[in-house]
Write a protein that binds this DNA or RNA. Sequence first.
DNA 1: CTGTTAGCGCCTTCAA
DNA 2: TTGAAGGCGCTAACAG
Lengths: 338, 338
Amino acid sequence: MNKATIYNVAYAANVSLATVSRTLNNPQKVKPETRERVLRVIKELGYKPNAFAKGLASKKSTTVGVIVPDMSRASVAEMLNGIAVEARKYSYSLLIYVMKDEISDEPEVLREVVASQVDGILYLNDEINEDQYTLLNTIQEEYKVPIVLANTLYPYDNKLVTVCIDYFKAAYELTKRLIGEGRKDIYLLTTARKYMVNDLKEEGYLKAIKEAGLQPKVVRTSGDISVNTIHFNELFREGVTIDGAVAVRDSIAVSFVNAIVEHHRRIPQDISVYGFQNTKYASLSRPKLSTVDVPIIDIGAKAMALLKKEIDGEPIDIKFNVLPHSIIERSTTQFSEE
Amino acid sequence: MNKATIYNVAYAANVSLATVSRTLNNPQKVKPETRERVLRVIKELGYKPNAFAKGLASKKSTTVGVIVPDMSRASVAEMLNGIAVEARKYSYSLLIYVMKDEISDEPEVLREVVASQVDGILYLNDEINEDQYTLLNTIQEEYKVPIVLANTLYPYDNKLVTVCIDYFKAAYELTKRLIGEGRKDIYLLTTARKYMVNDLKEEGYLKAIKEAGLQPKVVRTSGDISVNTIHFNELFREGVTIDGAVAVRDSIAVSFVNAIVEHHRRIPQDISVYGFQNTKYASLSRPKLSTVDVPIIDIGAKAMALLKKEIDGEPIDIKFNVLPHSIIERSTTQFSEE
DNA sequence: CTGTTAGCGCCTTCAA
DNA sequence: TTGAAGGCGCTAACAG
């Protein structure tokens, strides 16, 4: 039952294996009659081309490698949905590589990915430093395998196709809105670990703060809930002066909102809070979190679509693809359009 | 730079290609001297075996197919982390197939997975009905490809290796605890869509309820936050009599907790709530959610480990692997050990 | 311990 | 429109 090969099909359909191959890959080059006959036999035998043989002979795998950090991050998981749906359109398979901190052996992993003969690579890691960027670029040129960055970027260069939102602008806008509310002591809650995207958010925040002649205040904490909860509680116990906050992730924002409530400050009367991403956390929190809606599924889909174009050799004129974001006002802020 | 083949290596190391192949796959069968020489050349040339050729010749891919439903479910994403880490140990790659509702074309997808020459299949979908089970079993036997079910099960048969917790018992215990608190009107909040695991939770709930001579009350709602929020609010507006609830998912529990708070009932004085899974939602919600800790990462790892054993032809004596769960008491219940 | 030799299943010219 | 034949890069007996 198992291994119907192209030979079996050819024999049963009374044609040569070349014809079978053609009806599968270049149907128009086969006479309709024979084509149908072959297809019928294929169905009867439940024949599926062996992916290895196909790949070996054609040098193509219709598979893309997806390199992701920690899968449990909500944004990463959701992006994968977008990628998967788009990939399905082209009948592409997804080979997943979870990095989990060990960025050190990234060169190794990357070469492994390439060796597995993927047609292209999607890089979802949202931390990119110069070394990584250089490495990615080298890999892309050396092995001629297209690479697309999704929801991350390297702002100092643009050799790699990139899909993301304007983090800088988004953070700038959020901060401006808080300033518009009349807030004076606005904090940025970001990650202690360096992320390029978070650095951009920080810059956007700083710009708005400076323009308003305010004092920048940045808290660097952990992405881990139990850790940053303690951190935030400490902050309040020390009697911090604060009336607004922009967090680089929803989960951090929710942690912070919880700390505010526990310390009996009112939201948003005393303190306004913005999150970043519009994950499920934002709508499950109380008060409901105002946040930036990052079209994360679209980013995934767009990245996959662009990768497909690159694979097909189509020129990509716009390397840097910025998708539109929007700000969702819920209950942790009092922004008004006026 | 790209395509160093085994021939290049053989030539440069002054040996035959067979020796190169051996130093890679059966190092002990090669004289240490030559082995080192070959390895040096391999490194110099940056040689990586072509996965297709290897797979075609050896009939093995060191790749497992992972079939998942909606990736954005927190439990699914976290399980993937466990799987990825374990897979890395064996140098196995993961080929992901996201199902996204289209269960109807599941047969198609499954055969596709098989055609892609995976060595084994991990099935994370937590909905399994008779047809699906039969299909999986057929595939397993027909193609002789091992399949392991992770965090799901088909209770009426045990041909497929399964890794999960005792959902029935967990729900039974939760309900018993609520009864122990003196609760009389205990609801089960479950999904409208049929999930085998949720059915088991329901049975556990029913058993405890019946034993206590109480009236079972089951609410079937959506997993979608915006939908079930409306649903729950309606419930309270209708003046439902309720003093306890067991939800089949944390996110549903949190939605419910929010509804309770909005309708000015006290937690846990008036109503106690248990969630299920111990996702991030549980610790981010306020009050913090009491819930069942499902060792989801371990389940993933264990499933991968068992699959690896099956692939290696080792006999698996225990088909049904139940991992221990524990109940985490936080602030939405008032259970006491007494 | 090492080399030789068949394939693995499919794609792709090149002829017919 | 179809068939024949070579080869993709590697593994796995089988000799030596």
